[in-house]
Amino acid sequence: MTRYAINRAHNTLLAQWSTGIGDTAIVVARLTHDQLHQNTRRLAAELTRLSHLCWRSYTHPASSADRHSPHSLGWHRQQERDGFTTILPTLTATTRTTDQPIGTKVEQAAHAVARALRVLGTSQLTTHVTTDIAAELAAIEQAERGDLSDRAQQAVALSREDPSPLQISQADRLLHDNPFGSQDLFTQVDPTAAAIAAAHWFYAAVTITAQHTGMHPIQVVASAEQYDKPLALESLTDITTAMNAGARTRHVVMPLIRNALHIADGHLRGILEVQHRIMAAQELISKAHTDHPGIDLSPDTIHLPLTSLDPARPAPDLLDNLLHGIHTCWRLYQHHADPQRPAPANVENARQQLREAFLTATREEAAARSERLL
């Protein structure tokens, strides 16, 4: 989403958004020196909230809801998306309407921006803000079509409940070019789609590494080097286990991301996963008491993770985990190479040949399973 801020040094209203690698910012409008700072900051806050709610219609589309009957989740999401048409007229209205109820959160946010603009009371500022909001709405519509260029690029930092098949195919092509990941994967593709494609390539890397080393795929994942994030290994193990049982890549990845998004909203969808985690924690406590009778460990001291992903950024977090997993497979593959060492002068050449063998085998395995990507 776009975050708005006041540059006090230059007295300007700024709009800033992520590009996947770093942020970019533009000047929306120049402010006058007689405008109170608290009023301009209020405008920036209301604009940020409006952007957040509008982009939520992109990350949580009506199409991904289970039900669409009146007053269902899908119905409410569609109402929010339909509310886009009221935003610009609300900002440019010359009079304040009080006789009509404000139904959606998007409409409420638009009215809050309009009130902040009326307090500041300059038509030029209203024009500049309206122009910027129009560009923001156009960027969301562009992202919905699968085009993440220009201002719509901020979608590469968001986790979406319903990724585009075109985006998944684009991510798959980028990973074919470089299975270890590239900058384009983080700056041109929806991270949910990128995570689905990366899971496909990760499992291909796990499969050929298991064949090369004689290990079971789960052993390949478990032998990974220490992860910076304690729960990263859990997400990779879950994905490997499900795909090893024949599950399709999308059907494996999406529940992980959607569950994390629900938790970010303060909800738990289903209790089976939570019951599993609670039982595992109880078994851990019981074993600890058996092995160490004097230990002071009670259920209240256990921090129980509800998801293996970062709820604030589940898709980018999973994408990071999967690419790390592919690198881990390569290191394991390399470690189990032919023990007949080449002469020192040929070490680097032998390493490059082994790397190409790993990449070629991974590409062949990914191609052989291409029908299970979506």
Rank of each mutant, 00 (worst) to 15 (best):
N321L: 02
H324D: 13
R248H: 15
L373Y: 07
Q219V: 01
I257C: 06
T307R: 13
R67I: 07
D132S: 07
H68Y: 03
S18D: 14
I196M: 01
L53M: 07
H276I: 00
A5I: 03
T130M: 06
A288S: 05
D310R: 08
H68Q: 11
L236Q: 01
R77M: 07
R118I: 00
H212S: 10
A29G: 05
D184F: 07
D238H: 12
T126P: 04
D184P: 06
L158T: 00
Y333M: 02
D23S: 09
Q170Y: 12
L373G: 07
Q38D: 12
Q78L: 14
N259I: 03
F84T: 01
L120W: 09
S57W: 12
P163Q: 12
D296M: 03
G266D: 08
G121I: 03
E348A: 12
A15W: 00
P299A: 04
A112K: 12
D23H: 01
D310P: 10
G103C: 01
F186N: 09
N244W: 09
S123N: 07
A343F: 10
A368L: 08
A116M: 00
T328N: 11
A5Y: 11
G22T: 10
D228E: 11
N11K: 15
L31M: 13
L304W: 12
A155I: 02
A288N: 09
L268W: 08
V189G: 00
G146L: 13
A109G: 04
Y227P: 09
P163D: 11
A204G: 04
Q282K: 12
D296K: 12
L88P: 04
R67L: 11
A139C: 01
P61E: 04
A138M: 02
S223D: 08
G181S: 03
T2S: 15
E107D: 14
E144A: 15
A109Q: 13
L125I: 13
I285A: 11
A110N: 11
D177T: 12
I271Q: 09
A204M: 08
H37M: 04
R369N: 10
I87S: 06
S149K: 08
T209M: 10
R355Q: 09
D265N: 09
G214T: 01
L185I: 13
T86P: 02
P163C: 10
G214S: 03
L319Q: 15
S149G: 04
R81C: 06
D66Y: 02
L261C: 14
E225W: 11
L236P: 02
S57V: 14
Q211A: 15
R248G: 15
Q35L: 00
H60L: 11
T59M: 02
A114S: 10
V220I: 15
L309G: 05
I140T: 02
D300G: 15
A109E: 06
H267F: 10
W201S: 00
Q275L: 05
P316D: 05
W330K: 08
R248E: 13
I196F: 14
C329A: 05
A9P: 03
